[in-house]
Design a protein around this nucleic acid. Sequence first.
DNA 1: TATTGTTATACTCTATAACTATA
DNA 2: TATAGTTATAGAGTATAACAATA
Lengths: 162, 162
Amino acid sequence: MDLEARLHADHGEELRLWLRMLTCTQLIEQRVRSRLREQFETTLPRFDLMAQLERVPQGLKMNELSRRLMVTGGNVTGITDQLEAEGMVQRVPVQGDRRALLIRLTSTGRKAFAEMAHQHEVWIAEALGGLSPREVDTLYTLLGKLKQHVARVQNESIGESA
Amino acid sequence: MDLEARLHADHGEELRLWLRMLTCTQLIEQRVRSRLREQFETTLPRFDLMAQLERVPQGLKMNELSRRLMVTGGNVTGITDQLEAEGMVQRVPVQGDRRALLIRLTSTGRKAFAEMAHQHEVWIAEALGGLSPREVDTLYTLLGKLKQHVARVQNESIGESA
DNA sequence: TATTGTTATACTCTATAACTATA
DNA sequence: TATAGTTATAGAGTATAACAATA
């Protein structure tokens, strides 16, 4: 294949895969969103924030949450405000750095999250129930490869633009 | 496995797969969104709407667009208004039903979309470039299975609630 | 009565940038 | 100066529901 042909190579397969991937995630995500709203009066970003905190009992700093949730700082402040007002999380001063705060689940938040997480797991198991354990595993592995590649490309772009 | 155990069966594998899938699509989608904004001053929903129209030269009715884009009617009206104001699409009366309108790409819109679609394909090819053709194919097949299953579950739920 | 599309409204999420307080 | 977090703002996307015109 000469250069010209390589430049204009057909990427139809990748595109079709991408569109199908997007359809799958959108279908599932919409289900999850509407059920979180109906059954728990909450939203996916709020659920995601609590999920991050649940893994780290001592809590996470705002900027760490921001990084993990892949959103900017102002948003984390807003969602944290809501959850704090509802008694789900608390802001805890960090000793040694009076600028920083640790956000952590309260025991109320931990209980509420446990219920939601259980239901969430059931919803996901339903949605992915059409796949055999073997297929789940294959998908997991291939998407792991994709994730690594995308993350690498991402960093290179940031490098370029910086 | 008895009923009790089945009820509380572990769905950790499915959950991990789902989170990984979500991470992959979010990473790629963010890239696409920011590039559409930077390079073409447009958004993903607008791009998606034009993509639907591009496949159907004679145009699509509002409710058909709404179904395909998986959003409610009012939103389609809004996005269509913007694109019409920019001369990308036009509303065409449907003979035989004076309530309905066909939305179709103008020649300006077709040209603009062709450019964007080409770039879009390159971005996607970049993002998925870490996978071999064989892996792309496997993913495509497995996600096809997933899509069918999710769509079926979706319809059953709608059936229940209706 | 049902359907097509529009309008009006309200809410969530988002990024950006200016700001305060600490380091 | 740089960093942690907040505030203010503006914009996009979304759903819901009331509405007009037509079937």
